[in-house]
Design a protein around this nucleic acid. Structure first.
Lengths: 181, 181
DNA sequence: AATTAATATGCAAAATATTGCATATCGCGG
DNA sequence: CCGCGATATGCAATATTTTGCATATTAATT
């Protein structure tokens, strides 16, 4: 499970509260690791109990109180160990493909409509990723060097979404062609 | 959860035992929907209890006994309903990308080695998918028409793996370049 | 003044998935 | 004849994820 380690990495970059982390998941890591807020809070609790994180209660004037977590020495060591351990190839469970696989039991119109919905979300995601890429490319060289590894994950997102959309074109043109004239 | 519906689809294509299904997962659907054998057996039990499947105990001379499952009318209806219901965009949780994202806390060599391992599995998968594609392209036209939707899922696999490998080239060349000279 | 959105945290239950164990038959090779 | 691999099925425990509920503050809008 990488949620633990995703949290460690985000907190190594900068200490923060559960809510902070949840927001960071949505904007950076979230493109390839998803977590609900409940998962984040629960995991922070577990990681603290395991001694990988410590936290400090902070009262705020303008906002509700929050707990600011930071990585401990033990947590840092754990992260380094994990980074050196080979990880399994990613498990893919893609509902849309299951649907398409069994698509002959429904009308092509349903499939076309479904593709349209999914195309919309992939198009949006791609343009968000491209916007982030532009921001990166406008950074000074030393900043680019600092973010070069996260940038590679961004490239994965971009290439992945482009491939998805190219595939969607194939699907749409196949679905537009009647099976046997 | 699409495991239920993946099983319904596989059994609509042809009735079979848990073990049969498990093998079919490994060879067809398995490229985009993964399930352990325990999951398959448990789900078959649940689907039978829900009335979506029925089964027949078959004694075999040469092999252990098996239960042959088939989809009931209720199961078929359920599948059709499911196919008409929009599904959520796929959740991506990719450990390798988390690792790369936090890669500055380890040596580049670890990352290079990890990429090499993953590249090997993606290369293998791609050549398997291409082999299946060749088989498909050699089928007579009427057979091709019958399998055209599963073929589209195969195309997804191929385009996806090609994109992965193109990305891996970018990563390897970035990792080969020292950060700041 | 009341509602909504954003911030901030968390429990409990249910659904899903994984891991480890357990069993049994048959055919083949050594 | 013993072990191995393929066939065939399943339970129990644990881990992980999701869903639903619950609460509280502040700022901005209506």
């Amino acid at each position: 499970m990488s949620l633990k380690h995703a949290i460690l990495i985000l907190l190594e970059n900068e200490p923060g509260s559960g809510y902070d982390l949840f927001k960071r998941f949505k904007t950076s890591l979230g493109y390839f690791w998803n977590a609900k807020h409940q998962q984040v809070y629960l995991e922070l609790k577990k990681l603290s109990e395991a001694g990988w994180l410590e936290f400090e209660q902070q009262s705020q004037d303008e906002r509700p109180d929050k707990k600011v977590y930071r990585v401990t020495t033990a947590g840092h060591r754990e992260l380094q160990d994990w980074l050196k351990t080979p990880c399994k190839p990613n498990k893919i469970n893609d509902t849309l493909l299951v649907k398409l696989f069994g698509g002959r039991f429904t009308e092509p119109e349903s499939l076309v409509a479904e593709m349209k919905r999914h195309r919309a979300t992939h198009t949006t995601t791609l343009s968000q990723l491209r916007a982030i890429e532009q921001t990166y490319l406008n950074l000074p060289a030393d900043q680019q060097a600092h973010y070069r590894l996260p940038y590679l994950t961004l490239r994965r997102g971009i290439l992945g979404e482009e491939a998805w959309l190219a595939w969607a074109d194939e699907v749409d043109s196949a679905l537009a062609t009647p099976p046997l004239p």
